[in-house]
Computed example of a mutant assay.
Amino acid sequence: MPPTLRQRRLGVELRKLRERAGLTSTAAAARLGFQQARMSMIEAGRYAVSADRVRAMASSYSCADHKLVNALTEMTGGRTRGWWDAYAEFLPPALLDLAELEHHATRLRVALAIHIPGLLQTVDHARVLFQGVVPPPMAYQVEHRLSYRMKRQVVIQGERPIPYTAIIHEAALRMQVGGAATARGQLEHLLKMGELDNVTLRVLPFGSGAFPSTGQPIDYASGPLPQLDTVQLDAHHGCEFLDAEAELAKYRTVLDRLEANSLDPAASKEFIYHLVRNA
């Protein structure tokens, strides 16, 4: 079974620590008392490491960032078993990685120009979207995707909801996905979700001017430390995950600009309510 996004990320961070110490993988492996092949497997996320091993590696690399080391130890122990594993036979691995990423996130910020965020979609709205995928999916494939999307929503509606900020362009709010009744139901659902203490809705109206990005959906998942954040971008070919420091800084800036150009939460709710009244 291929390593998950979380396993790969742990390997990447351990490699960064080694490189900052100025060590080759061969030299680092010799210091730690195992073969270079194992080091390569660890840094590729293909070999599970224990918390004690991570601490030993960090010590060997003279890493004095105890918060980072502690955060990395929390990522050890092999694959995280979660509800998403039940979909392994039906969905691409990247979607399972997305669910795992959201499960471990401390905060989520999303921005969309022409779609309602997946974690805020109704069943009827999501079904219409899945049925319109090219090439057309089989009925059972639609139901698998639909079930998966609804279960993802546990991160903002479950027993341990995390802070969630959604920046939604007016274009997405005005699209009649599934017809007038489905569209109205989706808007009403947004208002309901906006009442949750952990959910913040911000509308980016047409009058706000240029959209400071390509319009590609952005999903920013905060980790226990800023350097462990992850950006997920949607594309026609699937999910793309970014974690380089420059990329994280770029998308934090993009989201900050989008928030600055959007309506505040109270005005955003009033904007959506106005759309519902006139639907």
Rank of each mutant, 00 (worst) to 15 (best):
A86R: 15
F34E: 01
T73N: 07
D124P: 09
L72E: 08
D219Y: 11
L248N: 06
P117A: 09
R184C: 12
S208M: 03
R277W: 06
A221T: 02
A58N: 11
L5Y: 06
G78N: 13
L91N: 11
Q157R: 14
L225K: 00
P212A: 05
V134T: 14
V123H: 15
H104Q: 14
L190R: 02
V177L: 06
D243M: 08
M175A: 14
F206L: 02
V133L: 12
V154D: 12
A30T: 00
G22C: 07
V142L: 04
L242F: 04
R55K: 14
L187G: 10
E43G: 05
D219H: 09
S50I: 00
G77W: 13
E89P: 04
A183H: 14
L98R: 03
L112I: 01
L204Y: 14
T230M: 15
S62C: 12
P136Q: 06
R20N: 06
L68M: 15
R18E: 02
H66A: 15
G33Q: 05
R8K: 15
L112W: 02
F206M: 00
G209F: 06
A246C: 05
V128Y: 08
P2C: 01
A266P: 03
A183S: 15
R46G: 15
A99K: 08
I42P: 03
I272E: 10
I218W: 06
L248K: 12
D229G: 07
L129K: 03
